[in-house]
């Protein structure tokens, strides 16, 4: 029997979610939209987060290249993904939307640049 509370991270409203019931049959209240219910289910069964980081470029006088995962990442593999980002060399220039990492460890998760750095 699950009886948990979460704050939804889907948007700045930060709904206070109450989650009860069984893993495959959850009852969710406190959400103001469908995203909240989906988030609550994922929190119990498969918690995920969007990962953002800054990758170091090959030219030390240029700013870092910010990146994000193009979809939420299972919490258990965030550390591995970060290690992957930190150890992947970046060759300038990069454009917003281009890939730093494709299909990370067979998960379909891509890491993309979020800023154009020349």
């Amino acid at each position: 029997m699950i009886n948990e509370q979460r704050i939804c991270i889907g948007c700045p409203a930060g709904c206070r979610l109450r989650i009860s019931g069984e893993k495959n049959n959850l009852e969710i209240s406190g959400n103001r939209c469908a995203k909240g219910a989906e988030y609550a289910c994922n929190e119990i069964n498969d918690p995920r987060r969007t990962v953002t980081a800054a990758a170091l470029p090959d030219q030390p006088d240029r700013p870092c290249c910010p990146v994000k995962s193009d979809r939420p990442v299972p919490v258990a593999i965030i550390g591995r993904l970060l290690a992957g980002i930190y150890s992947t060399p970046v060759k300038l220039p990069v454009k917003r939307g281009e890939y730093l990492i494709r299909n990370f460890a067979g998960t379909d998760i891509n890491v993309i640049f979020t800023r154009t750095v020349n």
Binding site: R6, I7, C8, I9, P12, R16, R49, V75
Partner: peptide, 11 residues
């Protein structure tokens, strides 16, 4: 914001 308490501290 509450969501930042959740995803930045509680996590």
């Amino acid at each position: 914001l509450p969501r930042n308490i959740a995803q930045c501290l509680e996590d």
